[in-house]
């Protein structure tokens, strides 16, 4: 630390700068050298230590801590079943679904900057997005295809959870949380369909919400609906659309469900889902196979 003894210039009178200034500059130069030297070991800097808190070397302890002390990574346990990291077991479909949800949130927020949920304006916004906004087309495409893909990956995830019997004790409840996640994933996609306000979305949502009219007891055209005083102006169909046809109120409702309510619900359910994966003992397998001959008699209460 600090300046070394300044080298005595042989011809001090030749410099332009007065010796005192030159001495100070030397001190600065030494400091700069030290800083450059420190850059070779970024993990020793105060900045790095303040951010990551632990050493990142290959010791047991550091590897565990790097997961446990990070708010994003600590969804994971420090260690996992050695065979569970094989792709063939989980197919990675839960993780990919979650990643797609993040992609959708990110692209969705960007899309919201260019979109007004009002009749007339909404359709123009999409045209404008595709023709004038830089990367607007890419943004819209990515949001659309990620949404489709997420539906597929959630189905495949459910398929794999079923085929590995991962819903069995003690994971029954998390399976139910998963079913709700599936439902809200589909609803999320469905409410997004209407937002461009084009023919495709309009008729898909008209067909879809028409079913609500037929709800038993709660729909104007459903069994026992008229008998209990339900009309087209007070049934569930009306509540969903904010009117008796798909119009500006329906657009606003779809928008709020799509951009606020369902993402919030989904996020909460995801938090529960991940929490339960951990609390139920981590990923179910690959577990040692059980034998029929060793099946224990059932415990009755």
């Amino acid at each position: 630390m600090g300046a070394q003894t300044p080298v005595t210039p042989e011809k001090p009178e030749q410099g332009i700068l007065p010796p005192r200034v030159r001495e100070e500059l030397n001190v600065l130069r030494e400091k700069a050298k030290e800083d450059l030297e420190a850059l070779k070991k970024p993990e020793k800097t105060q900045l790095f230590k303040s951010m990551f808190r632990v050493k990142h070397d290959e010791s047991e302890r550091s590897r565990a801590l790097s997961v446990l002390t990070n708010v994003f990574f600590h969804l994971h346990p420090a260690k996992v079943n050695r065979d569970a990291v094989r792709y063939s077991y989980t197919w990675g479909m839960g993780g990919i679904s979650f990643y797609l949800f993040i992609v959708l949130t990110f692209t969705g927020i960007l899309l919201m900057f260019y979109y007004h949920p009002t009749k007339g304006q909404a359709y123009r916004d999409i045209i404008y997005l595709m023709s004038d906004v830089p990367f607007g087309k890419l943004l819209r495409n990515m949001h659309r295809w990620a949404a489709h893909l997420m539906v597929i990956t959630v189905w495949l995830h459910m398929f794999r959870v079923f085929l590995t019997g991962s819903y069995k004790k003690p994971r029954e409840f998390n399976w139910c949380v998963g079913v709700l996640l599936l439902v809200f994933t589909l609803l999320l996609s469905f409410t997004g369909y209407l937002l461009p306000d084009d023919q495709l979305g309009f008729w898909a949502v008209t067909v879809g919400t028409n079913m609500a009219r037929a709800t038993p007891l709660l729909g104007a055209e459903g069994p026992l609906g008229p008998q209990v005083g339900v009309t087209p102006y007070n049934d569930v169909h009306f509540a969903l659309l904010g009117g008796s046809i798909v119009d500006s109120n329906a657009l606003l409702r779809a928008y709020i469900w799509h951009c606020i309510a369902i993402p919030v619900i989904l996020s909460i359910l995801l938090a529960v889902h991940f929490w339960r994966v951990r609390k139920d003992g981590g990923i179910s397998g690959p577990a040692p196979v059980q034998l029929e001959s060793e099946m224990k008699p059932e415990r009755k209460f």
């Binding site: 590995t164 019997g165 991962s166 069995k168 004790k169 397998g285 577990a287 040692p288 059980q290 059932e298």
Partner: peptide, 12 residues
Amino acid sequence: PYIDANPLGSGY
């Protein structure tokens, strides 16, 4: 999960 009473095949 609540009607499948078969304990085998959990995790593989």
